[in-house]
Structures are given as C-alpha cells and as structure tokens.
C-alpha cells in the first residue's frame, strides 16, 4: 500500500515537473549562455551542451512536448480500441471475425517500422499517433472484446436487456463501468509504448527540429560530448527513463489490484516495440 502511494506520488511529481518545467527553468533553454561542454558547476548545475546552453533548463523544458504527444496518441489508441472492442464483443459474428483478422494484420508489423513509414509522408506528431493507434488499438480491442464477452452474460446486463434498453445504452451504462480498471491499465500501457515510439522518432530526427529542447533529441545532440560533460546525456536519459519506468510500474500496481486485469496481462504478448 505504501509503495503504491509512493509510486503514484513520484509519478505525479515527474509528470508535473515535465509539464511545468518550462516555466521554472532558470535560463532560456535555447539561448547560448557560456562556453560549450562545461561540466557541472554552481551557475549551470548540469553543465552546458555543444552550443553552451544550460542542460538543466533544457531538461526541465524538454519533456512537455514528448509527453503531450504521447498522451494524445495513447488516448486516441485507447478510444479506437475500446470502441472497436465494444462493437466486436457485443455484436459478435462476422464483425467480430473481421475485427480479429484486422488486429492480426496490424499486430504483425512492428509499430516503430510503421511509424517510420508514416513519418515519410506525415509530420512527426501524426506519425506517433498513427503508429500508436495501429500498434496499440488492436491490443486494446482484444482486451476489451474479451472483457465484454465475459461481462455480457452477467445478471445485471441481462436485467438491462429485459428492461428493453438499447445496445448502446447497455454498453455505456452497464458494461463500460464494469471494466474501468481494465481500460485504465491498458491506457497506461499504451502511454508507455507511445512514449517509446515518440522518443525513437525524435531521436531519428522526425520530431521537433534542433533548437527546440527535447529529451530524446538531446540524447542524440549531446552524444558527441559525452566524455566532456556526461550529464548532458545522463540527465535527459534519466528523465525519460524515470518517466517510462514509473508509468509502467504504476500501471502494474494498479492492475494487480484489479481482479480482471491479471488474466489478460499474461497474453498481452505484443506489448512493446
């Protein structure tokens, strides 16, 4: 219980820092302030990068874009997956088979490859969203479909059906609330994968362009100076790693408490990149 609260507090702190860090940064994250590749010192707690910009300010400001894109992508993927899963699980029959075939097709392609191909044609944000939806929505769809199938035999659903409620009303009022835990835990997993895809695309140069502060982009920019100022690589790496790890662990802690979740987690083979 203590570890769970601690985890959520930590996660909230990290996310809040990433979201609001741009405002509390001591320096302008894009302004050259001093000598390049200076080590940690009183003026620049994490030193400076190749252009003499303050690494600490850039780390504080560099997470907001990454996280907001990932949240948008995860929400879209979850919405598409939940809608599809509700429809497939409730209707069954041909629709269910078509949905299963489509998810098999989408799951066969690694999300990052898909993101790269999409990034050819569309700008960075769209590529992250499309890749997360194509790689993640099928997993959500399966989970939700299975949950719908197991819930739709329950007595209270039967009762609602006997009251003459429409299918849509039953799904929204009776079925969806019963699988709140499943959907939330799944949203967390989608967010982790979206962060992985977004950071990969940003590192490859298909995200924000150079003067912009961004954790993933900083990793690539500062790689050449890793011997002179190790913090310039270690700090953004730690920020990005901490965010994803805390997120994944919080999801797991939340899912462990949920009685429906562990059964599907085991079959969730295509989780990552």
């Amino acid at each position: 219980m203590v570890s769970r609260i601690l985890m959520f507090v930590l996660l909230a702190v990290v996310l809040a820092t990433a979201a609001l860090g741009g405002w509390v940064a001591p320096h302008d994250p894009t302004a050259p302030l001093g000598a390049p590749w200076r080590g940690a010192g009183p003026e620049h707690p994490l030193g400076t990068d190749a252009l003499g910009r303050d690494v600490w300010s850039r780390v504080l400001a560099g997470g907001a874009g990454l996280i907001s894109v990932s949240v948008l992508a995860a929400l879209t993927a979850s919405f598409v997956g939940v809608a599809g899963g509700l429809a497939a699980g409730w209707a069954g029959g041909a629709l269910d088979r078509a949905a299963t075939a489509l998810t098999d097709l989408l799951l066969a392609v690694p999300s990052l490859l898909l993101a790269l191909v999409v990034a050819v044609a569309l700008p960075g944000h769209t590529a992250v969203v499309v890749a997360t939806v194509c790689g993640g929505a099928p997993l959500t769809l399966r989970v939700v479909r299975d949950a719908v199938r197991s819930i739709s035999g329950a007595g209270y659903v039967e009762a609602a059906r006997c009251r003459g409620e429409s299918g849509a009303a039953i799904l929204v009022r009776e079925v969806l609330p019963a699988m709140k835990g499943v959907v939330t835990a799944d949203l967390g997993l989608r967010l982790v994968v979206a962060l992985q895809i977004a950071s990969a695309l940003n590192v490859l140069g298909f995200g924000p362009s150079p003067p912009e502060p961004d954790w993933a982009l900083m990793l690539r920019e500062n790689m050449v100076g890793v011997a002179m100022n190790p913090w310039s690589v270690a700090a953004p790496a730690a920020a990005l790693g901490l965010t994803t790890v805390l997120l994944a662990l919080s999801v797991q802690l939340a899912a462990d408490r949920d009685p429906v979740a562990p059964r599907w987690r085991r079959r969730n083979v295509h989780v990552g990149l």
Binding site: Q196, A216, P230, G241, T244, V245, A248
Partner: peptide, 28 residues
Amino acid sequence: TGGAAVPTVVVAAGLAALLSGALGWVPA
C-alpha cells in the same frame, strides 16, 4: 516490467555514457 518500459534510446545513451564516457572501454 520497469526495465522493459525504458525506451531503447535511453538504454543506448546510458550504456554509452557509462562504458564510453565514464570508463572509456569502447568507442562511442
């Protein structure tokens, strides 16, 4: 679970900072 969630980029950068930056064993 936590380890698998870390993006590959972060692992690569962390290993480079450690093995190449700090220890100087292999070229970056």
